[in-house]
Design a protein around this nucleic acid. Sequence first.
DNA 1: TATCTTTTCAACCATCTAGTTAGACCAAAT
DNA 2: ATTTGGTCTAACTAGATGGTTGAAAAGATA
Lengths: 218, 218
Amino acid sequence: MTTAAKQAHEATSSTILEAASKVFADKGYDGARVDEIARAAGVNKATLYYQIGDKEALYHAVITRVLARTADEVCIAVAEANGCEEKIRHFINIFARQTGNMRYTAPIMLREIASGGRNLPQSAMNEMGRLLSALGESIAEGIQQGLFRPVNGFMVHMMIVGSLMLYSANEPIRRRNAENNPEIHNASHFLSTDEVGDAVADLVLAAIRNNEPTQPNQ
Amino acid sequence: MTTAAKQAHEATSSTILEAASKVFADKGYDGARVDEIARAAGVNKATLYYQIGDKEALYHAVITRVLARTADEVCIAVAEANGCEEKIRHFINIFARQTGNMRYTAPIMLREIASGGRNLPQSAMNEMGRLLSALGESIAEGIQQGLFRPVNGFMVHMMIVGSLMLYSANEPIRRRNAENNPEIHNASHFLSTDEVGDAVADLVLAAIRNNEPTQPNQ
DNA sequence: TATCTTTTCAACCATCTAGTTAGACCAAAT
DNA sequence: ATTTGGTCTAACTAGATGGTTGAAAAGATA
């Protein structure tokens, strides 16, 4: 394959995955129509099969891509942080940005979880594991240092990820509700991506921070 | 209609809705097969159409039922509580029980949110509103009394509901993960329904509690 | 220009599925 | 015994959908 051809392949492939992400997020695996994805990507259906494969291959590519991106961004941000609090903060802020800006991230993950991870390929599971570890280690470290209370790290993870994904995925419902009931419009229901991250970080850190600092464990 | 007939209607109808709840939770709206629901309910497909209606009517009935049950239970529990902290605690514990024991609750809600509430009938929206108010008022009251910090009540709601639904819906993935990696089995990933409620309540209350009590607002 | 490879397309098909229909069944009322 | 009203069923249909294919276009190479 020439480099020009390779680039073309890369470009179409990426266009298709981007379109597929949106459609899968919007309609779910079963609700998504391959024809619609092709149309949204502006390519013929056969091209899609030629470039990537059948519907399942397409979905696997999409979900692995979404999770890998999120895990990459989050892990980098956590690694760059100084101290446990900042690590948690970075984790939350980047996750908030990821779910807030890449609008398909949260719906795809939520649906996948709702289905019991039926379509989760191992590669995607691994990416989830990276996310879990990044936060788990930061919390364990903080507890070790006596900065955090001895909380259940997994529950904290659920809390962060749950609130951020829910808030992001909720948006259409909130908006519709605001349109239908303009009189009870509530500004606190419409925060910017960064405001959401800050609000969650504030709550989570308050939840786990050790306010009666004793000597660190050992 | 005779009372016997009425009872028969009630019974089949309920059986169908129960079966439909499971299938919709498991497969989602588009993934669910009407034939499968009928089979799961042990009735002929035509009976299902006779008793309830088409697939959409079935789904509307299911989601409204699920949300109404949850809202009912939660509202009763909150009303019975004394003081803001206890209201929050009751809210969380009952919600945890509802999502933890009625295993289809969380998946159905998560999918609905992921789809942007496309299939949410007004009746279901109202039930969601009741849930939101129950918590919102309790938090506002606590802030008013200076017991809670001036937090964003909606974000707290996202946090509670997000973590509980995520934890509940997660269960199959956690279990599969534990089976595949028995060496890193983590007890904190497998809490009982009540333990989950307590853990979340502990975290949330720590997050919003006012640790430097000043004079109440006014 | 001729040739070869990669990429795109429109039309097609086998299968699946939501929804319908015509009638069987059954209990109670006459 | 027969009618009546409600409940249920097997079998069917019309339409949609995932996936395929053979040919044509585009582009590189020589």
